[in-house]
């Protein structure tokens, strides 16, 4: 059937958007599980130090390399620190660095993309070519170069994540603008003499939001991986903060004697990355067009 048939007569008055989203999410058990994992880690990140049974930095020479037990659920490391507590508290940095970094990338990238797409011409060329250059470098390599020059710190990590992900957001925002700019409601806005900023952020942005949110959740999953990789390479959060990546690196030496030291932080990384990816995948369907009714 034709597209217009769908909407005419409002055959189905769509309920409020949020209710629709929730129902669609509920229909996808895998995405729901991913979302659950994501929020579980989010809670852990927020409450980490409060629910951790031990101080993550407290060393206990008598308790070195203990295997998992009731006292230490995930065993202890080579300094006798509680691995469980370190994993719990480590979630905080992951969310803090990855989250802020992704958010920064989303805000800056989206703004650049909107501008490039709507103003076009020289602005478009200039912005997109610079971003293309950024995209040309392998992500990890670029991150290592930047961090090696600037020195590892929380702020620098956030900036590196932002710089790496800005091009992706910019590209999506730009393609959305190119699609939206010829729509008639945008022309109606121009006929009212709306300012460019109003058209970009009030008329266009809300329509571009769904794909951007999906992208943000994918990028967040990647950023967890990036933070862990950098931590593993010694370019992550400086000690004594319990960084999952650094934990894995440190555990390598003791793998034969204490595999739990490596296992649990690595599992935390994998679980959060997978959970977030599943959630992102589900969001794509949640925000997507309604499941075809009459269309072939």
């Amino acid at each position: 059937m034709k597209g217009k048939v769908e909407a005419d007569h409002g055959r189905l008055v769509s309920p409020r958007r949020a209710a629709v989203y929730w129902r669609r999410l509920r229909l996808q058990p895998v995405a729901l599980a991913g979302t659950f994992i994501f929020f579980l880690f989010l809670v852990i990140a927020l409450l980490g130090p409060l629910i951790a049974p031990y101080d993550y930095a407290a060393q206990d020479a008598t308790q070195r390399l203990q295997s998992p037990s009731l006292g230490h659920w995930m065993g202890t490391d080579n300094f006798g620190r509680d691995v469980f507590s370190r994993v719990l508290v480590g979630a905080r940095d992951v969310f803090y660095l990855g989250g802020i970094g992704t958010l920064l990338a989303a805000v800056v990238g989206t703004s650049l993309g909107l501008l490039a797409g709507y103003v076009g011409r020289l602005w478009d060329e200039a912005i997109m070519r610079v971003l293309d250059v950024l995209l040309a470098f392998p992500a990890l390599l670029l991150a290592m170069v930047l961090l090696a020059t600037a020195g590892p710190s929380d702020l620098n990590l956030i900036l590196v994540i932002a710089v790496l992900y800005i091009p992706m957001f910019a590209r999506i925002a730009r393609s959305m603008v190119l699609d939206l700019r010829t729509r008639e409601f945008i022309e109606a806005a121009r006929l009212r003499g709306e300012k460019r900023s109003y058209i970009l952020f009030r008329e266009m942005l809300p329509n571009a939001l769904p794909p951007l949110l999906v992208e943000a959740s994918i990028r967040f999953a990647y950023s967890i991986f990036l933070v862990a990789s950098l931590g593993f390479l010694g370019l992550g959060v400086p000690p004594p903060n319990p960084d999952w990546g650094r934990q894995v690196n440190e555990a390598r030496t003791f793998f034969d004697a204490a595999p739990w030291m490596l296992l649990f932080p690595a599992a935390a990384i994998s679980l959060l990355v997978i959970g977030t990816s599943l959630m992102a995948d589900g969001l794509r369907h949640v925000f997507g067009p309604p499941v075809a009714r009459g269309s072939r």
Partner: peptide, 19 residues
């Protein structure tokens, strides 16, 4: 601008779906 307005062809795209 106030004196001159327009009604467009397609009802599907002439209103912002988010307003």
């Amino acid at each position: 601008l106030r004196r001159l307005q327009m009604v467009f062809q397609s009802p599907e795209t002439s209103l912002n779906p988010r307003q």
